[in-house]
């Protein structure tokens, strides 16, 4: 949400959507670093996940109010850049250029994230920290730095998602919460901690949402939860996750 609003402002002042696509994620990542340092890192010693949930949820509420005070309560429309307006023909069907652009960016970002995690030293350390942070620390890596970095990258990617979504859905208050629920369902379906699982989960959720809304509109709102329920019954750890 913050990304979408910052992107809106950058696009207005600079007149460039693509500049917004670079600047907004960087600013949201910086915001994420400060938030993580000040509010989340003191919680790392506590074992209960509830504390993180309350703090991040509290921040979301404060952020929504701060955005309302700064940008007002009305949705902010962001123009699709000139070169991405119009349609292209894909397999004899007309398709909006901007959606094709979103699909390409999505694939590129997923591929980059995978390459980063699998092929770089920092990616290796991130995977190791997710398995046993204390041991990584004892083997000579500053785990606080790795956590900061991951949080910043996550915030930056969320910011980029906001900028990209704004031309489709406008920047509006509450756009974050709808994404949080979808993201939650995707992670649970894919399996916690599994990168490939998240990708499969997101594609599955997208297909079920679109086809479900078309063929069984009465169940449109409930359908992804039904999908989650079925998967959790069959595989309690998610598609590619581990059962605890």
């Amino acid at each position: 949400m913050l990304g979408a609003y910052i992107g809106y402002t950058v696009a207005i002042y600079t007149g460039s959507f693509f500049l917004a696509l670079i600047i907004a994620p960087i600013l949201v990542a910086c915001f994420g670093i400060v938030f993580e340092k000040l509010l989340l890192s003191p919680l790392y010693k506590r074992q209960d996940g509830g504390a993180y949930l309350m703090v991040t949820f509290g921040l979301a509420v404060i952020l929504a109010e701060a955005i309302k005070l700064t940008w007002g309560a009305d949705p902010k429309g962001v123009q699709i850049p000139e070169m991405l307006r119009g349609i292209v023909i894909v397999f004899d069907f007309p398709f909006p250029k901007y959606r094709v652009f979103l699909i390409i960016i999505g694939v590129l970002m997923a591929l980059s994230a995978w390459l980063f995690l699998e092929k770089t030293r920092i990616g290796l350390l991130i995977r190791a920290v997710s398995q046993n942070p204390q041991m990584v620390n004892a083997l000579g890596t500053n785990v606080v730095f790795i956590r900061n970095l991951v949080f910043a990258i996550g915030c930056g990617l969320a910011g980029m998602g906001g900028v990209l979504a704004a031309p489709m859905v406008t920047a509006f208050l509450g756009m974050g919460s709808s994404v949080i629920i979808d993201a939650f369902v995707i992670v649970i379906i894919g399996g916690m901690g599994s990168f490939l699982g998240s990708i499969i989960g997101s594609l599955l959720v997208a297909f079920v949402l679109v086809f479900g809304a078309y063929y069984v509109p009465d169940l449109a709102l409930a359908i992804i939860y039904l999908l989650m329920l079925i998967i959790l019954i069959v595989r309690p750890g998610g598609l590619l996750g581990k059962e605890e």
């Binding site: 290796l124 995977r127 398995q131």
Partner: peptide, 17 residues
């Protein structure tokens, strides 16, 4: 406390500074 989801080589590389 081996990292269970990393390969043998990756486990070693974590400590290779």
């Amino acid at each position: 406390l081996i990292f269970p989801d990393l390969t043998v080589i990756e486990n070693i590389k974590v400590a290779n500074h």
